[in-house]
Design a protein around this nucleic acid. Structure first.
Lengths: 183, 183
DNA sequence: GGTTATTTATAATGAACGTTCAATAAATAA
DNA sequence: TTATTTATTGAACGTTCATTATAAATAACC
């Protein structure tokens, strides 16, 4: 399956460029040049740049959730769950860079322009929020704690664009420590 | 000064469009069309789209800080300071919509492309963080509390793109309530 | 070996991009 | 009033945009 490989390389490269500069800021040509393929190779696999964008977002959403699932500890206490979740998210940022959340950016750029892309993006965020709300209830905490956790993770992603990961992780840890004291 | 008026309308319109869709997603023509002026009217006041972008960001930064300053209570306790700051930020979001932070978006779109724009954007965020760190020290709290507050505000701005303002405000309020309990 | 699937190269498409031209209108100063 | 600067206009510039056309070459599959 050499074709699958080319398709994946195109997706990888485009995802990286989109994350670095944004969707509208990155032209198809720059993706093609960086991969080293002819235009029709891309259009053979993806009907358009926007379809490519959709597929990238779907794949990234699954990858992120799987990445977290492998690292989250849902077996012990709320404390260990929260700590493992924050740690996992920090690990993701470490691998991925510090340019914010690609889903929020996609939603921002395509709301009112391409509703499919906006829906995929918003859907992913909503799914993450829902997951956290349900997860904390495993430990008897209210869904409000899940909302707080979600807000902390969003704060981490934004703050990481200004401050170092170490500083951000420490700050988030303090916030999270006081999350569930008033249960 | 009829010209000052036109210049301001161009800035207002462009700022609104940039905030809705992003910088690269909005063409000069769409700004011109919405304002109802000829290209040179814009280029007389701004040497380029990127210069226009810079001026918009600078102006917006000042406006945001002034908006907060008028509403923040630095006279009483840490609690009232924190509450007033969060409330002020919520008010800003209410007036401005829920499309994230324009400064973070500018930094994301222009880092590696236009360093001046990236610097203005990052500078604004850094300035906000510094201000909060100094402010909380007025009440004897450590700068860490300021970092936490900054992270909460960032979390608010992101979460507001998924959930309602009321829900976000409540969640942030709970987070903030436990901010300073371990001083 | 024959068929289908994938990729190449090159060129061209029309539309949109940011920007500039040359001319004029409006405001200001002499 | 005239002269000069300031502000604005519509048309046009060259470039890049995403996409497609065409045709040939390579690879994978049965």
């Amino acid at each position: 399956m050499k074709s699958a490989s080319k398709k994946e390389i195109i997706m990888d490269t485009a995802e990286s460029l989109f994350y670095q500069h944004g969707f509208h800021a990155v032209g198809v040509k720059s993706i093609l040049d960086q991969v080293g393929v002819a235009p029709m190779t891309m259009y053979y696999h993806f009907q358009s740049k926007e379809i490519l964008t959709q597929e990238i977002l779907k794949r990234r959403g699954e990858r992120y959730i799987q990445f977290l699932d492998e690292k989250i500890n849902r077996e012990n206490s709320l404390t260990t769950y929260v700590d493992s979740l924050i740690k996992a998210h920090m690990d993701w940022l470490k691998n991925d860079g510090f340019n914010g959340c690609l889903f929020l950016r996609a939603k921002q750029e395509y709301e009112g322009i391409n509703e499919e892309i906006a829906a995929i993006s918003k859907g992913h965020k909503q799914r993450m929020l829902n997951t956290m709300e349900k997860d904390v209830q495993l430990f008897g905490a209210s869904s409000t704690v899940g909302k707080q956790l979600f807000m902390i993770l969003e704060g981490i992603t934004s703050a990481a664009q200004i401050s170092s990961l170490e500083e951000v992780e420490e700050t988030a840890g303090i916030l999270a420590k006081n999350l569930y004291t008033d249960m």
